[in-house]
Design a protein around this nucleic acid. Structure first.
Lengths: 355, 355
DNA sequence: CTGAAAGCGCTTACAG
DNA sequence: CTGAAAGCGCTTACAG
């Protein structure tokens, strides 16, 4: 009725438990050698009995766990989730297993404790609040941790971060090649889930790209929205209103409206397009709009969104690979940064600038 | 350097290991009673030493695990991961921990084996291929499993399923109240990820609602698309083309086009709106469109999508609650079905029928 | 009410 | 190359 153990196999095959353990773990490396017929018998009996390793017991005895924890602040948010999927896929390929734990500012301490209690082999954290607590506790328990971030680097620990620069570069280049010179930007006037203000970071990159090309960004060509809402969480209509106002301020700019608007994320771009339409502007004929993220529905939008493609999947995969590597070495809390580049996808929301 | 154990506490506090175990597990129930001062000392020493339970060892010794596995076919698909999030939230509230495993038709057997090896306490499965294999293996290992499904019930095991009927009812009622009588439907001509054909199921419900109201569904007022693509997976433009054609066939219907189109999911509705616009129709003024799912970006669409709201979150929560309950009882493989109702959200893509 | 003991299922030196 | 033994950190009857 209950599960088959190594002892059962040993008894039935007439060998010792260690022989079973060695064979089942395939450890005939260096100087360990077990007669082929013994090996065969053990394997046969194991199969016959339907033996299933108890990974828990193995982890307890060996002190090594192949379970990785993934701490995440807002799993609902599509980019965050896609990063988890990437880590999950990589974990499975590498023979690890992923445990997802959602955290809030309040539950952070408790969740970290859980990770230690579960003797997780490593930790990937996608958390917006201060990560120092995590690193401290994990270091004490000798658990390697790598943090995943978006656009903004962190000064300690192993850090995997999306490099927004190439995507911004490509987006501006795309617009310029289409003849746009008057390009506006809509940034975020808030920090994402209490984390860093990613919109501002992207705004910097935008300004840099414009400057490099000698294109002016007139006062008022950058506006901000405070739509701190995401997917299913977006219940506050007044938040959306802030995008409406940010867009209007660009469209009514005293020196004339921009011919293209670059938005710090896709949700904003979608709202911007709606506002433009309401004011009688055609997108992209009268005004081009570029997003940032490449959400799953960006391609289904009308018009399909031209957008910077963030490497969500690869971010997670890289983080998982880093964990695996750290697990192979002696424990240390050195810090390093690994950047994954963004790209750009031209779709239907951009077209040549109206002359 | 290495972790503190119960033995360390026992030594330092001058008591036995069992005393420590009993105190730390708070087991002063029935006839177990430990002097308060002993209790206090143990607790103090534990805190002082920074003791962290080894849940792995506990699970091995007690034979009970509070880790739940979540098997999912396509974690990328937004509805599927929203269901996971629901289960995750509920698990954390109930003191469980969730391990996510993605499966394909090829890896299914291996993943199930992993679950058994990890001695998971229970299994939630969101899998489109045949679930019999899962139930068989899990039953043998005495692991309770509940499966989560969309619209279609399964004839064995504990089953949590979205009930699409109330949402369809509300959607049609909404349209009828707006004066629509000529309503078309776009269904799926394929089974979702090799699973059941959900579109057909919704089509049935649509026909039922129309019939109940005495509204005709002329031949050709239901068409099909084969856009078997989701979110980031949507790379085949020819798939989208099938929605274009399905829409056109409705718009060019010999008896005149419908005044409203009900789509089997949001992605389809988004495409339909684009096609309508391209043909010079205004949405919703000339034609209303209703989706199904309530994806995160549905509210950001232009116009914001009126849609059936599927209870993704609650589906996951219910599944987790079922697991918890099963874990409290004697193991059995009885079967039961738990339905979670869909709802409807009226937004901007529907308006009174043009007369 | 407590302590010594056996047990959970596995791994890992270490003598033979 | 193999087997008996000790150990991983915990739980759980069971005598006192």
């Amino acid at each position: 009725m209950s599960m088959i153990t190594m002892t059962d196999i040993a008894t039935k095959a007439g060998v010792s438990r260690s022989a079973v353990s060695l064979v089942l773990n395939g450890r005939h490396n260096d100087n360990i050698r077990i007669p082929d017929e013994t090996r065969q018998r053990i394997l046969e009996v194991a199969a016959e009995l339907g033996y299933r390793t108890n990974q828990l017991a193995r982890a307890v005895a060996s002190g090594k766990s192949r379970m990785i924890g993934y701490l995440v602040t807002e799993p609902h948010y599509e980019p965050y989730w896609n990063t988890i999927i990437g880590a999950l896929a990589e974990a499975e390929e590498l023979g690890f297993t992923l445990k997802v734990l959602s955290v809030t500012h309040e539950t952070l301490a408790e969740r970290i404790r859980q990770c230690v209690e579960l003797r997780l082999g490593g930790l990937i954290v996608r958390v917006n609040s201060d990560k120092r607590l995590i690193f401290e506790e994990a270091n004490r328990a000798q658990i390697p941790v790598v943090s995943v971030d978006e656009g903004i680097e962190q000064p300690f620990g192993t850090n995997v971060v999306a490099d927004d620069a190439p995507g911004c570069h490509a987006a501006i280049q795309h617009l310029v090649q289409l003849g746009h010179t008057r390009i506006g930007f809509i940034s975020s006037g808030f920090s994402l889930f209490g984390g860093p203000d990613i919109g501002s970071n992207r705004e910097e990159l935008f300004r840099l790209e414009m400057m490099r090309r000698g294109l002016a960004v007139p006062e008022g060509y950058v506006s901000r929205e405070i739509m701190a809402v995401f997917g299913a969480h977006a219940d506050a209509e007044e938040n959306i209103q802030s995008v409406v106002e940010a867009t209007q301020s660009l469209l009514e700019h005293p020196q004339g409206r921009p011919t293209a608007i670059f938005c710090w994320r896709d949700e904003t771009a979608m709202c911007v397009i709606r506002v433009c339409r309401q004011r009688g502007l055609r997108v992209p004929d009268d005004i081009s709009v570029v997003g940032f993220s490449d959400l799953g529905t960006a391609r289904f939008f009308d018009p399909p969104l031209s957008t910077v493609k963030s490497p969500w999947d690869e971010l997670g995969r890289t983080a998982m690979r880093q964990i695996a590597q750290r697990l192979g070495e002696e424990f240390s809390n050195h810090s390093s940064i690994h950047r994954v580049a963004t790209g750009f996808i031209a779709r239907g929301s951009t077209s040549p600038a109206p002359f």
